[in-house]
Amino acid sequence: MDSIEAFQRRRMALYGWMLATPALILLTLFAFTPTVTTLWQSLFSRGTARRPQQFIGLDNYAALINDPVFWQVATNNLIYAAATIPVSIALALIMALWANARIPARGVVRAAYFTPTMLPMIAAANLWLFFYTPGLGVIDRIAALFGIGATNWLGQPDTALAAVIIVTIWKEAGFFMIFYLAALQTIPPDLREAAIMEGAGRWTYARRILLPLLMPTTLFILVNALINSVKLIDHLFILTKGGPNNASKLLLYWIWETAFAYFDRPMAAALTVMVLIVLGIVAVIQFRALERRIHYR
């Protein structure tokens, strides 16, 4: 009897490994190995035709830390995160509340909010080019009505990053709205009626009842927004190319540029390691939250 059970257990274990193997092979090829080789690469010098790569330890990291461009790009990315995350989350919440309220043509409003999510970032950038064109674009036309002169929104260091940030917020707010919308629909209407009975105003209801109930959703969206602040850089290729003078350059774009325009693979690897460290911190936060969900069932 015992041996049959042991046999069964061994067979289950074997099947389990066999079923998981194809996915594990691909993950090893395209997630685990590249992570390790990135770390390894970042410890070498850039090879040239005459001089092969040499092990240089942490020199690439030292070079980065002494490079003012690195600090500028890192600061840009921090500003990018600090602006896009709270603004798009707040907008998403407002959108969800409106898209959930009893207003005429609610479906059209909902679709309008969500549409940017369905567009490629490259297409979104093209649409916004038309807004940002100096003098002739939509924004300058509207500004002209108020007597404000033409502005080269994408071409001057003061506004380029802001212009890029606006496109990102426009792109992701409607996506985040969906999650708030789902959460709102699980809140029983009794709560609202009870709040009215108690004479609570809208703000009290929002602050004391809605926001606490939406907290888990907000956390989930926050993690997504954090990842997006690293990942969403496609529009730079169309709008600014990181310029002028690195004013709108973000980390992932710089990684691409370093590796595929300047062909400095070790330096790109060192940059990647830094991004991975940031993502690792996000991962720890998320796993804490996820853990409950995994063990729930």
Binding site: A31, P34, Q41, I227, I255, A259, F260, R265, T272, A283
Partner: peptide, 20 residues
Amino acid sequence: LVLLQLFILPEVLIVENYAM
């Protein structure tokens, strides 16, 4: 380990994934 891939985004690993 599998869940780690949610954060080690393929987008971030472009350089070494290109080599692979």
